[in-house]
Amino acid sequence: MTTPVRTRGGGPATRRAASRRSSGEGPFRFASTGAGVVLLGVMAAIAVFLISEAIPALQANKGNFFTELIWEPNGSQVFGIAALAFGTVLSSALALVIATPIAVGVALFISHYAPRRLAGPLGYLVDLLAAVPSVIYGLWGLVFLVPFLKTPSVWLNEHLGWFPLFGGEGVIGGKTMLAGAIVLAIMILPIIAAISREVFLQAPKINEEAALALGATRWEMIRMAVLPFGRPGVISAAMLGLGRAMGETIAVALIFPATFDLSFQILTPHANSIAANIANGFGEATPIGRGALIASGLVLFVITLLVNMGARMVIARRKEYARAAA
């Protein structure tokens, strides 16, 4: 296609020929370029309108937006993001810690352990986890997981209470940070597993065969030939999962008890997140309250944007991963 060819109808040959013979070329090209620009415009507009609608509320704020724990934009007009941002970070970090090892195991299972014929359907089964709407995970967490976790939570608190995360007095179990984090982990597992799987499948076959020929066991082969190749891919997959966990709303809005404090005790009912607070607080918010929620949404947008851009840059740097990025 690089050499200019003379064609009667225009083709890709010369601009002039094209514009003379086919009036549709210009508009069509314009439309498709325009659609791409619209996408960029939407991203810019998200930032612009969130900022512009947040400013009045931030100006009315009587506390420090970044350090205040209280969230009372409707009443005393003192509100801060600290407790909510803390909850968002802690819950998604916990979810990541739970989900990543399992997802890597699932990816290895599909790519290197499962029988060739079964690998496709079994992989589809894991992908189905991603198809379940988040509100259904919320309902499942509320009705099934929260009561289910009661006994293990009490046991952990009694026997491993010295460990800061499992400590705490009083009500143990119920709507806790742990329940929310487990639901988040289930929701981000398929995306981490899917990307890791693609990356593991692209590990150079020749290295794997060389390792096996030298007498390595299957695990040794994976450790020497597959994991080093796949590590950056798994890291960026985990970061994409982190971004998704941070933005996840409805499931945690149903499970988190909506408290406003900083607590590492994941077995006690102290949990909230930016997204859950928006969903729970939106209904009865005053104009200032809505502005405050938009401001918190802006913080969430910036955090997830940074996490996602980081992940995408890791993927984009490695040409081999091009296929896995989708």
């Binding site: 996408l39 960029l40 939407v42 991203m43 507009a45 998200i46 309108f49 969130l50 512009s52 609608e53 994409l240 971004g243 998704r244 941070m246 933005g247 996840e248 709303t249 997204a275 928006i278 969903a279 809505r290 929620l293 938009i294 949404g297 969430l300 947008f301 997830t304 944007l305 996490v307 996602n308 851009m309 992940a311 995408r312 990025a325």
Partner: peptide, 19 residues
């Protein structure tokens, strides 16, 4: 940015249309 956009939380999309 299409890649980045896949990571926009759904609640933020809702907030944007609301704003």
């Amino acid at each position: 940015f299409v890649d980045v956009m896949t990571g926009v939380p759904s609640i933020v999309a809702g907030l944007f249309i609301f704003a």
